[in-house]
């Protein structure tokens, strides 16, 4: 199987969907002539031309709303946010229009639009550019939310997102763009709403999403190495829809849960998952569900402290030991 980067996987997904469906367009700031602020769309303008690969001004409310309007007439715009953090400038278009138009029209309209871009901290750019809005996004019925953590998932999930008839927020991570992994060639789709067991185990379930999963896997290695603990690691991949079955099956097996994610703790995805687990698998729990999140403050600029604000392998490892006490 070919080994490519997460960045290339995203690009391949878009190229294949551009080839497949003439209604797919890529739009956003610097996506065309500049070849992408993070080079995700590199080479696409040369291959597909300016009708399909469209530069927009810095005008998120305007161009995201425009893409949304175009999607109501059957186009499938894939909108790049240079930083997902800039979604807040287009909040009304996303959460009043994209999320609600189908409902308020009694089901007469649907909006097949994808909003994608990096939604992470850890790049030394300060609080305004380091938002992790997955729980805010998933809070809104009508919106789907995807957070891929591997190159294969990046490709397979983006292809599914582009074909989806509902609005999808597709949250990437700049720190993963250069990571490589095996990605199947060609038209291989991964359905939204299907979690992946990244590592099987029997002693504790480390569940999470996004780049924190990569750290969880390293923590699981340490737990095995130092304490002979077999941790199961589950990547949700999709937040809404949510694969409850895979979560609950793991809880029933290990009886202990640690949720890991890079977003802040209050009203996070982990809080929601913990709630579901106590509702639906309370009798299987041998310990409270614990969480590892970013430390609860705006994202700090200072580089060494920023690394500690985000979940670390060490923090996940220690938290897992606490759950197992």
């Amino acid at each position: 199987m070919p080994v490519i980067t997460y960045r290339e996987a995203l690009r391949h997904a878009m190229a294949e969907e551009l080839d497949r469906d003439p209604n797919v367009v890529i739009m956003g700031e610097e996506v065309a002539q500049f070849n992408g602020a993070y080079k995700i769309t590199e080479g696409l303008l040369a291959k597909y031309g300016p009708k399909r690969i469209v530069d927009t001004p810095i005008s998120e409310a305007g161009f995201i709303g425009m893409g949304l309007g175009a999607s109501m007439l059957g186009m499938r715009p894939v909108m790049e946010l240079m930083f997902f953090s800039f979604y807040s400038v287009a909040f009304d278009q996303i959460f009043n229009n994209a999320a609600n138009v189908r409902y308020m029209s009694g089901g007469l309209i649907n909006c097949p639009i994808v909003l994608r871009g990096p939604a992470n901290g850890g790049t030394n750019v300060g609080a305004t550019h380091s938002h992790t809005p997955e729980s805010i996004a998933a809070y809104h019925p009508g919106i789907k939310v995807v957070v891929p953590s591997t190159p294969a998932d990046a490709k397979g999930l983006l292809k599914s997102a582009i074909r989806d008839n509902d609005p999808v927020m597709f949250l990437e991570n700049t720190l993963l763009y250069g990571e490589s992994g095996e990605v199947p060639d060609g038209d291989v789709l991964i359905p939204l709403g299907l979690a992946k067991v990244m590592r099987e185990g029997t002693d504790i379930s480390i569940i999470g999403h996004g780049r924190a999963i990569q750290m969880a896997l390293k923590s699981a290695d340490l737990l095995k190495e130092k304490h002979n603990i077999n941790a199961e690691v589950i990547d949700l991949r999709s937040i809404r829809p949510l694969d409850e079955e895979t979560i609950l099956a793991s809880v029933r097996k290990t009886n202990r849960v640690l949720y890991v994610e890079e977003s802040k703790p209050f009203c996070s995805v982990g809080a929601m998952v913990a709630c579901l687990i106590q509702e639906k698998a309370f009798d299987y729990l041998d310990a409270p569900v614990m969480r590892v999140n970013s430390v609860d403050s705006p994202a700090i600029y200072s580089m060494p402290v920023e690394k500690l604000q985000l979940p670390t392998v060490e923090r996940i490892y220690q938290s897992a030991l606490n759950v197992l006490k």
Binding site: A61, G65, G67, L68, M72, N97, V101
Partner: peptide, 23 residues
């Protein structure tokens, strides 16, 4: 539509026009 937020429908109308031209 029929949109409740003042000015919020204007980007949508722009997008409908975008699709008409594109198609």
């Amino acid at each position: 539509g029929g949109h409740g937020i003042v000015g919020g429908q204007v980007p949508l109308g722009t997008g409908l026009a975008y699709a008409l031209k594109y198609q």
